[in-house]
């Protein structure tokens, strides 16, 4: 089966990102396909490479990056939600006159159309959040 996954909450604050990650891993292990993981609302905070969690805790952002590299996952941060919350890639930083960017490897920034496309193209869209 082809899954689309939506993550609507930020890392550590809420279990949504952890659950989505575990779901994605389990789905891939069972031979399913993941069309895209779309991060919306505070979920875009899962895509910053500047998190420094305590060493004895899981690194949620790195975990997503690794999963993306290993499985060629498409991890997309909503551009409007990301800009509001200070998540910028190099291009967005330049366009908006900001002095830094902070996107973690394996993530990309794109529009809400990517969410609708994931909903239309996937067999199931699974949302993680409140």
């Amino acid at each position: 089966m082809k899954f689309g996954i939506v993550v609507n909450e930020g890392p550590y604050q809420h279990q949504a990102s952890d659950s989505a990650y575990q779901f994605a891993r389990a789905a891939l292990a069972a031979g399913h396909e993941i069309f895209r993981v779309f991060f919306y609302h505070d979920g875009v905070n899962n895509g910053t490479r500047l998190t420094v969690p305590p060493q004895d805790d899981r690194n949620i952002v790195e975990r997503w990056s690794e999963l993306a590299t290993e499985n060629e996952l498409d991890l997309v941060l909503c551009v409007a939600a990301a800009q509001r919350r200070g998540l910028l890639d190099e291009g967005e930083a330049q366009r908006n006159g900001k002095d830094a960017d902070n996107i973690a490897p394996g993530f990309r920034i794109s529009g809400l159309g990517q969410l609708i496309e994931a909903a239309v193209q996937s067999d199931r869209l699974v949302t993680f959040g409140d």
């Binding site: 529009g111 609708i116 496309e117 409140d130």
Partner: peptide, 19 residues
């Protein structure tokens, strides 16, 4: 919370997809 506003943004963008 911002859910309502950002939901509306999805609806407006989604309208272009003729679903």
């Amino acid at each position: 919370t911002i859910y309502a506003l950002e939901s509306l943004e999805v609806v407006l963008i989604g309208a272009a997809f003729d679903q």
